[in-house]
């Protein structure tokens, strides 16, 4: 895996670049995931608000719901849930696609024909996943906050202006910047794991399924580990 990652960096910064394939992968990985991620984010914001409300009401701090939901979504839930959904959809897709290409010897054929399959298949998909996940997370955060706004308005009337004022007032760069940065790593993890599992798939069609499955599981674990590291590093860097 480490060698695979090292090769990725070697190939990624070395011409020739597959821009056309990169754009296509960005469209497939990013744009085509938007509906799923958007729906999930909307429900996440709505449900989080509704679930949080009874406890907040019990302590008489229901006015803090927008602030609390805002911090939760921006800092943690938005990136993590979106990354996990992304891993489920894109990680498995890449793993299965590359796996099937491997077992049907398409990758071998590419090597024989002089095309660099690593650059064409792995680099483009990994870079696309790395670049598209942050965009998806930003959109998912916005959609989740809108869901939360609707969730608050189920029980009380709260203007949108006050809602976003309460959210923004309780957020700072400390909350937003690390949350955005870590999503690049999440995207990279999903892309590289999916490609790794698919690229080295074996044992026929059974291996394709296993590659897809293990790509999702491994990417999800990586996401949590990276999240833990991101929190620690953020604490360390911000307190310097």
């Amino acid at each position: 895996m480490a060698r695979f990652t090292a090769r990725f960096f070697r190939e990624a910064f070395h011409p020739r670049y597959e821009f056309s394939e990169l754009i296509r992968q960005c469209f497939i990985i990013g744009y085509k995931s938007l509906s799923l991620v958007g729906l999930t984010a909307f429900i996440m914001g709505l449900v989080l608000t509704m679930q949080l409300r009874p406890s907040m009401v019990r302590y008489g701090v229901e006015a803090e719901i927008p602030a609390m939901v805002g911090i939760s979504i921006i800092r943690e839930i938005g990136p993590i849930i979106t990354a996990l959904i992304f891993a489920g959809k894109i990680g498995s897709s890449i793993g299965a696609e590359l796996g099937s290409m491997r077992v049907t010897e398409q990758i071998d054929a590419m090597e024989v024909s002089g095309t660099n399959p690593f650059k064409y298949l792995v680099v483009t998909r990994t870079v696309a996943a790395t670049l598209m996940l942050p965009v998806l997370v930003i959109l998912a955060d916005a959609i989740a906050l809108y869901g939360s706004y609707l969730g608050v308005n189920i029980y009380e009337i709260l203007s949108f202006k006050l809602f976003y004022t309460l959210v923004i007032d309780n957020l700072g760069y400390y909350d937003v910047i690390p949350a955005i940065i870590k999503t690049f790593f999440f995207g990279f993890a999903v892309g590289i794991v999916g490609c790794f599992k698919g690229y080295y798939s074996s044992k026929g069609t059974e291996g394709v399924g296993r590659s897809a499955n293990s790509a999702v599981v491994m990417a999800s674990v990586f996401i949590f580990i990276l999240d833990l590291l991101a929190v620690q590093i953020t604490e360390l860097v911000w307190n310097l």
Partner: peptide, 29 residues
């Protein structure tokens, strides 16, 4: 597809810029 992708990325960037703008206004950075 490229246009759709462009709109998608642009929407994300606009939201990010807007968010940072509101934060900067709030924090008077």
């Amino acid at each position: 597809d490229n246009v759709k992708l462009g709109v998608f990325v642009l929407a994300g960037l606009v939201l990010l810029v807007l968010f940072f703008y509101m934060l900067s206004k709030n924090e008077s950075i």
